[in-house]
Design a protein around this nucleic acid. Structure first.
Lengths: 351, 351
DNA sequence: AGGCATCATAACGAATCGGCATGTTTCCGA
DNA sequence: TCGGAAACATGCCGATTCGTTATGATGCCT
């Protein structure tokens, strides 16, 4: 029967049934089989199909020959489906084996695509970082972070939204942001990192000095550091609403209640007002670092070296998210509190 | 920052890199990751994505909650890629987790398709059986097998090719056939099941009686069984080439050398010749079963109840191929040697 | 503050896996 | 026809993985 007339007799309906795509909701037998198919079997069968023998497949996979042999045998044992049959001193795939080999490509391709995307994320050639930070970080820390991160990992898409600490923390909690840069005052009554940050990961990010901003001609402008109580009678310009709380606290600690003449959350405006002699102000170092010093003001540390604490807030476990991890590393590399750069008198020497 | 103006700042080239499909030949990192992704993780992540929590995913998969928890943790440990992060008292998928969840569909779909096809094969709603059998089985065993198998498993595509035993065995060996029905004579010199069938699985399929065909008016036509030696002087009609060998052997055993007057491999023609009184013949029972008896002949068993042996030949291990297994079962259910049906005198009562 | 829901951790037993050593079968060449 | 080589099969062992139960930690809600 080499090339003799093949008297073929096909039973009725064979092709139609055999070729019908299985879009029916997997019957029980299918499900049992699907559960029995493990990736190792798929890989092994794929290798066998590609290389033609168990030995060659084993070599290609970096396994020993018996390992492959057993893998195949186990599948047969637990499913009753033979994948190979002996052919001379070698083997060949059965119909079932070829079925698996055929689908193996699709599976491994999908998995490799997934692995590729993961590698992109892990290698930070992809991924995203949704950043939230308080206003005075916007012109300082945030651009520095974005520059540093963008240079090292051009594939990471960074988005930034400005928000005060409570809203920033909430954004992380609600998964609208991956990383929040926040601050808190030592005795903050409603420190968002106390109540509302539970369930989140909060990292200390150093302390940011609080500076006194005085008109250039102020009587105390000559002092190296200024005791707050000596400004008890000066009019005050309060910064952002939250900063105002801090001012009240520091003043109380110094034994007086500040007379707040003006209020604005625009720290550039604060400087302008101080320069005009409308009052004195407390500003965090970062806010001062954002712009060149106004010629009409002088900046002095407070005698107590008051600070506010910076924090990095993420979801718990998010430190393992590559983009977040990279951002955290980049932030640590920055000068967190801005002490060095913001040291009095050397404010302008930007990095 | 609920719906405040989102001052988005995206680092350069983010989108392009992030969205570029990974058609590059998987780099090393990708390969390590691909190897680390196991099916269980994929299933677990898929379930988490679908159900929103580890507990629900565990329930859906039929596992305990810690099992799922650990599965996720192990993946993180061995790849350094976080799949979930805490969110309140629950969890949510990270970017990486969503990547896997997204591809999980493709993977499980492929696997289910494969499982479906395997189930089809296993359940014999699909599959094929390439059958080879010797000529006198063509009108008897083969149609019966096809009918029986086709009725029980309409999805199995059966093809049949007629071939003498040596070619049939070779067809199985060369994977041009899945199942061969063959025969051999007791003392067959070149029994294909001895030398050439090594490496194949050969099953005994019972013995088929050899009948004497005599002209109706032959002097020995009245005997119940005919000693062969009493036909030493009759002219003989030899059947197929291989049958001729058997005839010579049986005659030799009976102590004579048959005078072969005619030769044909067409057993219908043999009967016609015998009816014309041109000689006597030996025919296997199956050949006789194929057609109604010619009125001019009588059929008698030989005194020694000579037989030829039938065999079923498959590739080693092929008995686990569903279609082959079903065919073997169906064949065993048939009356192998055709003894009952082919018993003398009751030849015509077909099943 | 207490109760419930959810996830994390620890410890344990079972199953799986892969390697090595060795046996069996088949092919091939002298 | 008789080794020898090639290929797969098998038995056994140590290591690892996996899933379970029991228990702890945390966060949400009333």
């Amino acid at each position: 029967m080499t090339d003799a007339s093949p008297a073929e007799a096909s039973s009725a309906g064979a092709a139609s049934t055999a070729l019908a795509p299985t879009d029916a909701p997997a019957d029980e037998a299918t499900q049992r089989l699907a559960a029995a198919i493990d990736l190792q079997t798929v890989r092994v069968v794929h290798a066998i199909a590609a290389h033609g023998s168990l030995t060659a497949a084993a070599a290609a996979l970096g396994y020993s020959q018996p390992a492959v042999s057993q893998q195949v045998r186990r599948f047969q044992e637990r499913t009753g489906v033979a994948l190979v049959e002996r052919a001379g001193r070698g083997i060949r795939l059965t119909e079932s084996g070829r079925v698996i080999a055929r689908h193996a490509r699709a599976v491994t391709t999908s998995l490799e695509a997934a692995a590729g995307e993961l590698a992109e994320l892990k290698g930070l050639r992809a991924g995203r970082l949704r950043l939230v930070a308080f206003p005075s970080a916007s012109p300082t820390l945030v651009p520095e972070l974005i520059a540093s991160l963008g240079a090292r990992h051009p594939g990471v898409a960074i988005t930034f939204v400005e928000a005060e600490p409570p809203e920033a923390v909430e954004a992380v909690r609600e998964n609208r942001a991956d990383l929040a840069i926040t601050f808190s005052y030592p005795g903050d009554r409603d420190d968002p990192h106390r109540a509302s940050a539970r369930g989140l990961a909060v990292r200390a990010f150093g302390d940011e000095p609080i500076r006194l901003v005085l008109p250039a001609g102020h009587p105390l402008a000559g002092l190296d550091d200024v005791p707050l109580e000596r400004l008890a009678d000066d009019p005050w310009i309060a910064g952002c609403p939250r900063c105002r709380g801090h001012l009240l606290e520091l003043a109380a600690a110094a034994g007086f209640a500040p007379r707040i003449a003006f209020e604005t959350d625009n720290f550039v405006a604060v400087e302008g007002m101080v320069a005009q002699g409308l009052g004195v102000a407390l500003l965090p170092a970062l806010a001062l670092r954002a712009t060149p010093r106004h010629p009409g003001v002088v900046v002095r540390p407070t005698a107590r070296e008051d600070v506010r604490s910076l924090h990095l807030v993420t979801a718990k476990g998010a430190e393992r998210v590559p983009a977040v991890a990279a951002a955290l590393r980049a932030l640590e590399a920055l000068d967190p509190g801005g002490r060095a750069a913001a040291a009095v008198g050397s404010i302008d020497d930007d990095v």
